[in-house]
Each structure stands twice: as structure tokens, then as C-alpha cells.
Amino acid sequence: MKKNRVFSSAAFAIVTLLFGLNSQANAAQCGNGPGGFETWKQQFAGEARAKGIGGAGIAALQQTNYASATINADRSLHSFKLSLDQFLAKRGAPAIVSRGRSMKQRNAALFASIQQRYGVPPGPLIAIWGMETGFGSQRGNQNMLSSIATLAYDCRRPEYFTDQLYAALKLIDRGTLSGSQRGSMHGEIGQTQFLPKTMLEYGVGNLESASGALTSTANFLKAHGWRAGAGYQPGEPNFAAIEEWNAAQVYQKAIALMGRQIDGGE
């Protein structure tokens, strides 16, 4: 009996291993060029259906195309390697600060409401707004879903963008987004450039409007530990929330510096 039990356990392990290998073989496989994208799309659609993505999301996925411009942009992220001074100059920090102070005065009631609810002062929100889209003027003209699907297929960061793709498909199923939504090179949308998963978790209102985008950004920062009244420069408590917004250190420091200048500091 003991021998039979050992054999049965071994047989079960082999069957489990073979099942796992078969599942992996049937999973959507990443690629490094456009050649396998259509096959990947069909495989991914099957996985998406199994995870509960509905007809609208699947139909939108089927209309996506391989986004070569997105891949080219993803391979050319050089500005985050600049020094802080170089980065500020390249991004036009003085102009952002100058216009940001004007935007703060012009939208005083909105920023007061946001600060009262979320504890986030205008400076860092305006710095993010100016840095991301030039205060809403440059939101990108790429097909959002094609960009994200391409990055989910690409072998460089498939896990990260697969999560973004599922979030986008859920938002399409809900009617919050459409398959024709335009965005930036990596699929960011709205006036402060939310990726779909971030939008799903922290979006408040219409991200294409200034009020919706700024409120959503404040909601994100609060959810990542922002404390009302605490400082947000490097080494101060709220800088950690800015770090969660963007992983590039030079970007984080630029937001903190410009935010302080907009809020009235030097």
C-alpha cells in the first residue's frame, strides 16, 4: 500500500507538471516585433474572456494595431537620465512655474476645495499638471488601447502592462473609456496622464477636465500617504507620495522644486 501511495503521489506530480506546461504553452506569448502581435491578440482575448472581460472590451481589443511609435518611444526614454538642472531646462520649468502661479490664482476656488478634501496644496498638483501635459494642451494623439496592448505584448515589461490592459478593458466594458480613446505614447490619458489601472483605482470624475484630473491626482497622493500640512521636499514626509507618482528621481525632485516655487517658496 505504501508503495502504491508513493507512486500515486509521483504520478499526480507529473500530471500537474504537464498540465502547467500545457497552460504555459497556451498562454499569450510576448514578442519583440509586430510579427506575432495578431496571434498574441487572439490568445489574450481568450484569457480575457476567462477573466470576465465582456464583449465591448474584447471587441475593442480586436481592433487594436501594433503601435511601432509606442515601442520606439519606450526605447528612447533618455530625459530621465539628465541631471536635475538639465531636466528642468529641458522641460521648461521657469515657464511652468510662471504660468502655474497664474493658474493657481485663476482656479483658486478649485484648489482650495481640493486642499480641504485631500490635504494637497496647489503647488505639486500644478507642477504635475504643467509637466505632464502643459496644463492640458498636450495630451497625446495615440490610440490608447493599441499603445497599451502593444506594451503588454512586448517582452520588455509584459506583466506591468498586462495589468494596465486588463484595467483598460474593464473601463471600456463599463463605458468609462472607448476603444478610440486618444492618449500619450504609453497609453496615459487625461490632463495629468493617468494609466488605466491608476484611473480605475483613483480616478474621480472626468480626467479630460482640469477639475477631474487635478482631483484624481490629489486622491492618488492622499492614498499614497500624503499628510495635510506636512512638507513635500526631499526628506520631508510627503515626498514619498510624489515618489509613488513617478519612479524617476529627477522627475520627483523637479515636481517638489517647482511645487514649492508655485506655492510661494524659493
Rank of each mutant, 00 (worst) to 15 (best):
G183L: 09
A60C: 06
P121C: 06
A50D: 15
M103S: 09
Y66M: 06
A73R: 03
A13P: 12
R174Q: 15
G119Y: 13
E266Y: 10
F194S: 13
R5P: 02
L177Y: 03
Q142C: 07
G183W: 09
A10N: 02
L214M: 08
Y202K: 10
G190L: 02
H78D: 07
L110H: 06
D74A: 00
F220L: 06
A254C: 07
E266D: 13
D85I: 03
V204H: 05
L110T: 01
Q29N: 13
G205Q: 04
W40P: 13
W245T: 05
A213D: 13
A112D: 11
Y66V: 04
A149V: 14
I148R: 01
A248E: 10
A152R: 06
H78C: 04
L77R: 05
Q233P: 01
W245V: 07
F194H: 15
F12I: 15
I58V: 14
C30V: 12
W226D: 11
A256N: 08
S211H: 02
D154H: 12
L257C: 07
G46S: 07
T192Y: 13
L171S: 02
F194C: 11
R227A: 04
Q63N: 05
T70R: 00
K253V: 10
F19H: 08
H186L: 13
P196K: 08
G20I: 05
K222T: 10
G203N: 08
Q116A: 08
Q164I: 03
G54S: 11
G33D: 15
A210Y: 06
I255N: 07
E47P: 04
A28S: 01
K90Q: 04
N26V: 15
